[in-house]
Computed example of a mutant assay.
Amino acid sequence: MTTHLHSDFDSLLRKLSSDDVFRARLLGDPVAALDSIGIALAPGQIPSQRCLAGKDAIAIDRMAFMSKLDSAAGAIPFFLGASA
């Protein structure tokens, strides 16, 4: 699996919170939809049943997530939770 920078996650969350065409494409063909924004996943990594949270909920989560990543102190739990 590819390591993704926080800009990849921001791009994904931005599209999920605003782009109805991308959301529909992600539900129908997740591998192709993610590939279109530079995120490569194998088909076996995709659950057979899929659903998405609402755009407003994703927008709120995006702001919270990005604010934590932009803060050095907010990133510490991510580093501490990694396995060796």
Rank of each mutant, 00 (worst) to 15 (best):
H6Q: 04
S11C: 06
L27R: 05
D20Y: 05
V21G: 07
D19K: 01
S7G: 01
L34V: 12
S18T: 08
L26S: 01
T3Q: 11
F9H: 05
D10A: 01
G28Y: 10
K15M: 09
S18W: 05
F22Y: 08
K15P: 03
A24D: 13
R25I: 05
L5E: 04
K15W: 02
V31N: 02
V21Q: 12
G28A: 13
L41G: 02
G28T: 13
R25V: 06
S17T: 02
L16T: 06
S11R: 11
T3P: 03
D29E: 12
R23P: 00
D19W: 00
H4V: 14
L41W: 05
L34H: 03
D20P: 05
S11M: 08
S7P: 00
L26W: 00
T2E: 10
R14D: 09
D19Q: 03
D10E: 04
A24R: 13
A33R: 00
H4I: 15
G38T: 04
S17F: 01
V31E: 05
D8Q: 06
H4P: 09
R14A: 08
T3S: 12
I39S: 11
T2Y: 10
D20S: 11
V21R: 08
T3V: 13
F9V: 06
S11P: 04
D8W: 04
